[in-house]
Nucleic acid binder design. Structure first.
Lengths: 222, 222, 222, 222
DNA sequence: AATGAATGAGACTTCATTCAT
DNA sequence: CATGAATGAAGTCTCATTCAT
């Protein structure tokens, strides 16, 4: 067995890392670059420099810069999905608990930090006219929206909240996620992940008063 | 008064429009271009084509493309400010009424339409790493935040709402604005200006129950 | 008689200065601009700014920027010619005296200063491939060469200098003029007009030893 | 050794010439272009066309057109230095012989031809106001001046020439070099390299009469 | 597979010239 | 005559993509 073949097993060092590993390296390079230079300031060179790879690899592994960027968005979206799916995996949780877990999943440092928010809003900034990006996002968003709306529905039933449309609550939550992300990105001095979580907790406690004990504010970053 | 003199005052036809008029034309061209091609897809040529002017004018009137873009952002921000300032000008309004007027000012068609939202999020997408844009935005945002927080404070006093921090409410409103804007931009089929206004009304009515009659939902676009 | 007509007499103030005066203003603007920004850094705008006139006048009075530059070169050449012609006008001077007067005419502050040398070498720099400039220069140079060579011939005859070709002396003088101008331009700290004049005096005194008393070095700038 | 390897070492054909070779190609392209179109008429396109390379390479290899031009000047200056250094390398030469070798080094066809003189005066034309060019030139000039002045000093001592300042002779020589270069450039019909060398020889023979046999005029181009 | 020099379209900007006033 | 905004060709530079090694 030659050294090259050993290397090929995916340790990621040297010229023969697995295809998948190289793709991942490039996606990470793209994230780093976008967070540093913005989407418009990101070039194939900034991406590959960040990944410490040669420029030729982008087209070799992704076909084009554009495809790599789409994969990068897909990667972030997937990472986000993993985060909230994981947080509600425990089947023993009550609906309110699960809903709160989804809320919190939006504000864990791993997902909600300046670097990644910069990337997210870089893509949002183009989503207005570039349908492709919108499609990638909506795939993920739709699933989460369904789950959230369903949990709200269960909470409404549990609490017997008349006059509350669970879908409206789910919509409001979506608004909070994006709005607070943007505020965290642009005004990090004035608005923190902690603030975001507590504003949403207050909203939920007020909306579902009979579940308010489940939406207690948190004292500090977990 | 001759036609020529009228013309010279800035009807914008021919070589003799006023400087201010040309600047405005170019800013409008920038908005159209960004909404069509995105911020990164906007070139001096797309801007001047949209404005039906020659490319040289961008540098002649603004010094650089970058400066024109900054002025464009400033223009949007100013327009937004005029909108909400105008809406609370009537000194006879109650605090809750004024607050609602500010809310609604975010969702008038003149401000909140796909074209302009595309431009806004184009800039937000760069604001993460380009401090200059952030500075232009925060100037405007700060003022509105102060006014909103003050109105919330008055409502809290009026209603004797204990345990409600007016600044937290103002923060939540800011979150709603940005979050709903993004949802209107990306999912226009699923989420309308109308929806946004009603979700916020519900939030306010729930938060300030003794003022709920002032936060009635609206039936359809005004 | 209207005010406009009075103005037209050539005081150079206001909108109706004589054609000739405007042309002169623009030529002076060109000299100032070239000395400040070089020939390649000189634009119609830098010229007209220096002359405190509007850009349109260049094409109005000269037809094109290029024509103005040619006139500028012609102006400098003419100025130079006036200088040495004037210096030998006195018919009572001896040939050696006249020759020295021509030499000195090259190094009077009015002709030989950083600003004007910058302009001269700006044109020389293009003369290599632009025949037009060369033609303008040679017109003037030829006349001076003839006069100088003739004076040298007279000195050779006076002194009975065998083995001295007067044309060779004239050639050497031409070399000194240009070479010392360049050194004054590029190394003003190390080489002065005074130095130039004295190096040439020494050359002439050595070459024409029996006239050496007429080529005494000068102690300091006149 | 295979042909491919030879190629790779820099024959300049195809996409694989060495970096150094490409830089040299571009410098040569710059010289050709400047001699044909002048410094101000030289564009990245004229340079790369002359070098038969694509426009992108200028920025790839030099960072900017300006840097390439500076390197071009440095190249010429270096070439000139090599020429005169080489000419005085033989330690057995007498000072007068060495001095004459330096003189002649200025007028070898390889250095002193219309193309290169055009380039030199193109740069001189900007040196008046662009300190960067002046710095590059003076580095080289200073060394040569020191050597020349030192040789003159030795000749003065050898010949016991009282009243002769060796530095003044060195200054006069510098004047001759530049002045004759300009005359060769502008009046090639009337003034040749041969003329220049002989005028300087006569100057030296007259100045250092006891060494005159060492400064005999040359009959024709070597 | 990987590299990185090479390519060239297209971006921003400059500026000589034009022309309505 | 004079002004200076407008035009658009042409300049420099960037960068996604290609391809010989």
């Amino acid at each position: 067995m030659s050294a090259a073949i050993v290397k090929n097993q995916g340790d990621g060092v040297g010229r023969t890392a697995s295809k998948e590993f190289r793709r991942h390296q490039l996606i990470m390079g793209a994230i780093v670059s976008i967070s540093k230079f913005g989407l418009s300031g990101t070039t194939v060179t900034t991406i590959t420099s960040a990944a410490d790879l040669s420029v030729g690899l982008v087209n070799f592994h992704f076909g084009s810069k554009q495809k790599l960027l789409e994969e990068t968005l897909r990667f972030l979206a997937g990472e986000h999905r993993e985060q909230w799916r994981e947080s509600v995996r425990n089947s023993g949780m009550a609906p309110a608990e699960k809903l709160l877990a989804i809320v919190d999943a939006h504000f864990v440092p791993h997902i909600c930090n300046r670097d990644k928010l910069t990337v997210w809003f870089g893509f949002y900034g183009e989503a207005g006219y570039r349908a492709h990006y919108r499609d990638i996002m909506s795939e993920i968003d739709a699933e989460r929206w369904d789950v959230s709306a369903d949990l709200c529905r269960q909470i409404v039933e549990e609490g017997g909240y008349e006059n509350i449309d669970p879908e409206h609550v789910a919509e409001s939550l979506e608004g909070f996620y994006d709005g607070f992300w943007l505020n965290i990105l642009i005004y990090p001095e004035d608005f923190s992940r902690q603030d975001a979580k507590n504003r949403i907790r207050t909203y939920l406690a007020t909306t579902f008063p009979r579940h308010s004990s489940e939406f207690r504010t948190v004292a500090q970053e977990d």
